[in-house]
Design a protein around this nucleic acid. Structure first.
Lengths: 107, 107
DNA sequence: TAATAACTTAACCAAATGGATAAGCATTTA
DNA sequence: TAAATGCTTATCCATTTGGTTAAGTTATTA
């Protein structure tokens, strides 16, 4: 579903959606349980759920009237790995700005 | 600058900006070096740089006519840590959907 | 000093986003 | 079977976003 990493980051780039992800990390929940803490009407909220689902961050299953949502572990894993693979690169750049300023003067 | 994590994710949630971050992980670069690969006019591109800078993902320093940009390691570190601290939570949920489907039937 | 290079500012625009309300549709519950 | 629950669909709207062009400013270079 989600070939591009920036789609996944985009899905996390909203206060409501990030909170939903945090809540689902604690365990599955229904749409109304997830919506509860957020001050908005359901149609607006379910749009956020669709963005998260489109990004592969959550999945859901409807049983009767109730839709239950789940975190998608593999996508979380992919994101985590993206950082893990790059950690040494930013560590290598840790002092770059400082070094640059020192070499060239501050003005 | 960036109290909320979703601001940082939002900054990474765009193809151009994510590419800039990837490029800066390899080392500092000027605005035009960064803009080179991207098919857009400079004013549009520098808006992306301002979003990244506002999110604390990059910093920059102007020397003469040239502005040089740097990755901000501490913010990358914060993001990485957010995932690291939650890894066990999504691992614990790995089989949740499968288990749910099995318990409740697939219909 | 004239021209060029590297941005920067300002004004504008189309499309996407995040929200609303109203109405509809299954599924439980009384 | 009537009412309530838990979404879902459709339509609409203001604001934000991601882009444009034009013009300006500050270094460098010829």
């Amino acid at each position: 579903m989600d070939k591009h990493l920036y789609h996944t980051f985009h899905a996390l780039g909203d206060a409501t959606r990030l909170a939903v992800v945090e809540q689902l990390l604690k365990g599955p929940a229904s749409v109304s349980e997830l919506a509860g803490p957020h001050d908005m009407a359901l149609p607006a909220f379910t749009k956020h759920l669709r963005v998260l689902e489109g990004a592969g961050l959550i999945s859901s299953q409807k049983k009767g009237r109730v839709r239950t949502c789940f975190i998608q572990a593999p996508t979380m894993c992919d994101l985590h790995e993206w950082f893990a693979l790059r950690q040494r690169m930013w560590e290598a750049r840790l002092d770059n700005l400082a070094a640059y300023v020192e070499d060239n003067g501050k003005g």
